[in-house]
Write a protein that binds this DNA or RNA. Structure first.
Lengths: 223, 223
DNA sequence: AAGATTTTTACAAAATCCTTACAATTTCCT
DNA sequence: AGGAAATTGTAAGGATTTTGTAAAAATCTT
């Protein structure tokens, strides 16, 4: 699954873009401003960013600069309302970035995204291998010593997440927000139940385990 | 699987060509310039190159020269916007190369590629064989143990797609977009009905099956 | 118009997910 | 340390969502 982060302060446009890209098979997150976007990126690996340039608080370039300080790889597709860009702005983009002038066609957006992704060769399989344990996002399967471990959608998401950032502790709230949705009931024990089920299913796996960080959440650790 | 490398700096055209060739059954990589292309070639063996001539940084001829220093065999199909080529440029191509003048029809491109590949005696892969099961794109037929399995257009498209990428899960949305078109109603159950019909028709086939990935979509797996 | 194909609909079946309840564990406080 | 409070583990079962599929309706083909 390819993850795209959309940064756009116009709620309606943001929603339209996200919806369309999601429909096109991408996993999409919509952030309303740069600060939000940076928070998103702390908790999820994105393959591409689509960002407006003119936004309140933090403009697209400042945002991009901050992002690049951490991740040099990720391509950024800038959206701008100005029909002709200043040379300074044009020069800001690197070889693997691109521009799109509003208003644009959604199909056009999709093509540009596909082209950018192709350019950085993101289309490789996202597989995480830990000893004899393999979790594959494209196939949506988990295997241990050649035997498939059947995981449900939520279980898969959570486990893949934990293993993507080993040792990092994820709060229930964070997992809840990402996989269950914003409006989820905070008193819900769903995450715990999901973790319990995962532990049962990976009980044979010796390479890692999910441990509880009391009062904070869960994390995956190698052993 | 035949691997084709497309070298074209116009992102949109690049994407269009890649998408089309991919749809035609080739494994395609898209490079935006010669340097990129050479990097690609370090990591993968290609059977044919489709390259623009006029590109920034490194033009198509310089690129081709570099390629041939390493690989004498690989055929190169040049694309050019000029209607009449200089004799020097014409003379550059070898017997197993070809030219295509822009703008061109995609069908024309496909035909030329097929011709070039034939010339170097590489067999076309439009046929997928899995044990006693054969699905042939050219004839648009499916056979099992010599008996034809009659498939409708949609059924054929979906099955061919699933079998082209075994184990990969395709979401309803993705299949919908590719074979039904983006405007299609997202609440539609057409994909499910199509899968149900396919399953009925391939129920005798032992070599593979279509599996439901709950909450995500469908995939074909060997067994 | 007849036949084939595709879509919609409706209901059944299955899978997933959530809540609940109570037990176990950990932390906090004196 | 001992007990209270908060947090976590987890089984059970019922609610919800997703999928299967037959049959009717709509659409396309010839």
């Amino acid at each position: 699954m390819i993850n795209i982060l959309v940064v756009e302060d116009d709620a309606e446009l943001n929603e339209t873009i996200c919806r369309y890209l999601n429909y096109s098979g991408y996993e999409v997150s919509g952030a309303m401003n740069g600060a939000d976007a940076l928070r998103f990126m702390e908790n999820k690996k994105y393959d591409l960013i689509v960002s407006d340039i003119m936004m309140p608080l933090m403009d697209g370039f400042v945002f991009a600069e901050t992002v690049r300080a951490v991740n040099q790889e990720i391509p950024i597709l800038f959206m701008t309302a100005k029909d002709d860009l200043g040379s300074k702005e044009k020069g800001f983009a690197r070889g693997i970035d691109d521009y799109l002038v509003k208003p644009f066609d959604l199909t056009e957006l999709k093509w540009r995204i596909a082209a950018l992704l192709r350019r950085v060769r993101i289309e490789q399989v996202k597989k995480i291998e830990i000893g004899a344990f393999v979790i594959d996002e494209e196939e949506h399967t988990a295997n241990y010593r050649g035997e498939e471990i059947a995981l449900t959608k939520k279980e898969f998401s959570v486990l893949y997440k934990l293993l993507s950032f080993p040792k990092k502790t994820f709060s229930r709230a964070a997992l809840m927000e990402e996989f269950w949705g914003y409006d989820s009931n905070s008193t819900s024990r769903s995450v715990d139940v999901c973790i319990a089920e995962l532990r049962k299913k990976i009980s044979e796996v010796e390479e890692f385990e999910i441990i509880t960080v009391h009062g904070l959440g869960y994390k995956a650790v190698m052993r």
